[in-house]
Amino acid sequence: MIGWKRQLHGTTGGTANAVRLHEVTKRYGKGPQAVLALDRVSADIARGTFTAVMGPSGSGKSTFLHCAAGLDRPTSGSVRLGGTELARLNEAPLTRLRRSSMGFVFQAFNLVPSLTVEQNITLPLRLQGRRTDRAWFGEIVARVGLADRLRHVPSQLSGGQQQRVAIARALVNRPEVIFADEPTGSLDPDTANDILGLLRQAVTDLHQTVVMVTHDPVAAAHADRAVFLANGRIASGMTSPTVERVTAAIAGLRGAA
């Protein structure tokens, strides 16, 4: 765990962190039946980086993302988004913070079926009572290739197009961090590669921060770094992950289980 943190700092040149988890523990339930999902996890995610969170089933990777994004509260420890300690916020300001400072991309797309593509993309802004920056909207729509689909509803789109809508929605409010949970899990390999390319582009060209949970070594290879969880703890990490190195690391975790 400490080694991964030092490696991460060493590759960012002192860049400020977008997300910091410190000694985060998460238990579900109480007594002998309690499940320890995260066990004193500490991690720093630098701004403007693409991090893949990986591990075997039950390793705690989804809980890691949910705690980092304020979707779930840790049992103990602290989570900071930039300079804000999430544990100090009650539900209303936490919801406002998620809307203004976070973007989300999920495997199931989570689009509103009755809204058009344009309305789905701008929904986070409308929920905040903010006006749409039309220049920024036009740029992200062009980048995700949806300029000719703005009046369509989700049922008129392919799965890949729906995920492009979700990425545009995540970008529209210029968030501090985009959290992606298995964003390519329901897509065919070619479409998945396109979606991963868009997330990579969001980091490289738009200077966003992306934290992605994935089980797929091909997906992880698009990231700047990968962190591996096992039994609720950070087991290891690597910079510049490749399919081969990630596959070997996952196999090692399974062999040690």
Rank of each mutant, 00 (worst) to 15 (best):
T242L: 09
N110S: 12
D133R: 15
V117H: 04
Q163P: 04
A223S: 07
V41P: 11
M212P: 01
L86P: 06
T51C: 05
I121P: 09
L65V: 10
L89G: 12
R225I: 05
G13H: 05
E91P: 00
P241A: 07
A68W: 03
M1F: 05
P241Q: 10
S155H: 13
S236H: 07
R131G: 02
L206F: 01
A251L: 11
N110D: 13
P241Y: 08
F64Y: 06
G252Y: 02
Q201P: 13
G252R: 01
H66M: 12
L115M: 13
T214S: 05
R27L: 04
R73H: 04
L89R: 09
A108S: 10
G103F: 06
G145S: 10
R233S: 00
R151F: 05
T247D: 14
I195G: 03
S236A: 15
S155P: 09
G252L: 06
D205A: 14
V41M: 10
I45K: 01
F109N: 10
V35N: 07
K26R: 14
Q201H: 15
V177I: 13
G255D: 08
Q128E: 05
T15N: 05
V153P: 08
D39W: 00
G77E: 00
F179H: 06
R169M: 00
K61R: 02
E182G: 04
L71M: 10
A147D: 13
S62K: 06
D133V: 12
L21R: 06
Y28M: 10
R174W: 07
A249W: 00
R233N: 03
A251R: 14
P154K: 11
R131Q: 14
V79L: 08
T239W: 02
V112F: 09
P93A: 07
G255E: 03
G13S: 15
D205V: 13
P241W: 01
L171N: 08
T75H: 00
S236L: 06
V218C: 00
I234A: 01
A37V: 04
T95N: 07
Q161H: 10
L229P: 01
